[in-house]
Design a protein around this nucleic acid. Structure first.
Length: 134
RNA sequence: UGUUGUGAGUGCCCUGUCGCGGCUGCACCUGGGGAAUUUUCCCUGAGGUGCGGGUGAGGAAAGUCCGGACAACGUAGAGCACUACACCAUCUAACGGAUGGGGUCUGGUUUCGGCCAGGCACAGAAAGUGUCACAGAAAGCUAUACCGCCGAUGUUCUCGUUUGCGAGAGCAGGUAAGGGUGAAAACGUGUGGUAAGAGCGCACGCAUUGCCGUAGCAAUACAGCAGUGGGAUAAACCUUGUGGGUUGAAAUGCCACGUACACUUCGAUCUCCUUUGUAGGAGGUCUGGUUGCUCGCUGGGUUGACCUUGGUCAGUCGGAGGGGGUAGGCAGAUAGAACCUGAUCGUGAGGUCAGGUCUAGAUAAAUGACAGGGAGAUACCUCGGUAUCUUACAGAAUCCGGCUUAUAGCUCACAACAAGCU
C-alpha cells in the first residue's frame, strides 16, 4: 500500500475513544508471551490505512513512566519493521482492522525477544483474519 | 596516598541506515475565492504527499510541599469562624526560600579573653485553663511535713524547790537548714538572726521586669538605677502580632457538531402609595451572587385569563431531577522575573549596564531502533591483551522562582580513620 513500507503514520494509529471501548467489549484476543493482542474488524473504515493500531503497557506492573516509554517504543519499532509482511498476508475483502497490543510481561525486555514475539503474533493474527473473512 | 562520609559540579561522544513530532524551503495533488469564458488565467494558503534544511527531555522533567504570573467567578464593605507564619536586617515579582547578622543549646579546642563546628517552628508560661508517668509526704498562688530539727509560746504529767521558779517527758504547734524520692523540690555562697529555722535582714553573685544611657538601621550587647525571686510544657488549648477571597489550564474564550419553541417536579407570582395615563416608587416574598456563618450591598421575577375572591389554568423567573448529544478544531501555549559572556556595585543572596543567542511544544501524547568506532568502567592477567557493560535516579504536559527526595561513574572541596615519608 505505502511505498515507504517501514513508516508509521498518523492514520495508522488508533485514536478514537469510542472504537477502543468497542474493541475491548467486542474484540477477539489471544496472547503470545510477552504480548497480547485484541482485534476486530471495523464496519466504517477511517482513513485509507488497512490497520489501525495502538499500544499499551499496564501502569500496575511498570510504575515508572520511563520504563513504560521504553517498552512501548520497542513494541512500536518491532511492529513497524514487520508491518509490510503483515499487510501482504491480510485478506483483500477486509475493510479495516482495529487492534491493540498489550505488554503482559513483568520485566523490561530487549529488542530481540520483542521482535520474535511480534513476528509470531502477526503470523497468527493474519491466519485468523483469513479464516474469519471466508 | 588509600577508604568512608558530607557538600558542589558533571550526567558519555561520533558516524551510518530505517523511523517519529514541531518549524521551514521547493515541487505536486485535493480545496477555497475572483476574473473571463467554454477551458484558461490570477489570488489565497486549509489539508495531504515527496525531496531538502534545521530542531527535539531533565538535573532533578519526580514529589505536588510553598510562592508568583495568568484566567474565571456581575458588584462596595464589616464582623465572626477558618487558616498560615512568628529574633533582626537585606535580597526578591513573591515566598514558609536565600544571604548576612544576633541570641541560645550541644560538642571540640584554649594562652581561659575567646575560637571552631553543628543544631534550634527562636513571640508570650509574669493573662487564663489543662497536663507532669514511676518514685515521693508533697509536682506548684497561702506547700495538709516521711525521716530529721525545735518545742521559744500555750498546755498536761513527773521531779526538785528558796513558792519566785527550774529541770525532764509529752501534746498542741513551729520549721523547707540537713536526709531521702525524682528529669525537676520553691535563687546560690557566706554571715547575722532564731527555740529551731527561713531573702527574715545584710554582703557578694545569679536570673528576670521596668526606666534611662552608650554602641548598632535593628535584633541585641554593655553599664547604671529601681522593683521582683514567678518549675516544665504553647509540635496541649490558648493569647498577642502580621498576612490570607475561592477555584486551578480537565481554568477560560471562540468556532464547528448536536438535541430543544421538548419532559417531570418544587417555590414565587402579594400588599400599599403617587399619577389622567403609559409608568414609577416603597415594603413583603421567591431566588441568584467572590469558599463557610451573620449583617450589609446588589441582580432578576412578582404577568395575564377565568371566576364561587381564593382557587384553577397559562405564562415568566429561579432551583432540582431524568433523558439525549458532543467530547473535534483554534486560542490559552511557549521570547521568558529567559540563557551565555564581559564590565561594574555589594561581605553576600543579588542589582545595574553592554554585547550576543533563540533554546521541545506533544495531546490515545514525538524525542526511538539497529550496526560500527572512540572513550570510560569492572573482572581476569603473561602488563599487554581478552571478556562483559554503556550503566544511576529517572520521561516535559500552562509557564516561572524555590524547597524536598532519588542518583552509577568521574572531578573538586572539607572532615574522620589507616599507612608511609620528612
Amino acid at each position: 500500500m505505502n511505498k515507504k513500507s517501514f513508516s508509521f503514520r498518523r492514520e495508522e494509529r488508533l485514536k478514537s475513544r469510542k472504537t477502543i471501548d468497542k474493541l475491548f467489549r467486542n474484540g477477539q484476543s489471544f496472547g503470545q508471551f510477552p504480548l497480547r493482542v485484541v482485534w476486530m474488524e471495523m464496519e466504517t473504515p477511517m482513513g485509507s490505512s488497512p490497520v489501525q493500531f495502538a499500544l499499551t503497557v499496564p501502569k500496575k506492573k511498570f510504575k515508572r513512566a520511563s520504563d513504560r516509554n521504553r517498552i512501548r517504543r520497542l513494541m512500536r519499532e518491532a511492529y513497524r519493521l514487520q508491518k509490510p509482511q503483515f499487510y501482504s498476508h491480510l485478506p483483500e475483502q477486509l475493510e479495516q482492522l482495529a487492534m491493540m497490543l498489550i505488554y503482559t510481561g513483568k520485566e523490561i525486555p530487549d529488542y530481540q525477544t520483542v521482535e520474535i514475539a511480534m513476528k509470531q503474533l502477526l503470523r497468527r493474527l493474519s491466519k485468523k483474519c483469513q479464516k474469519s473473512t471466508r
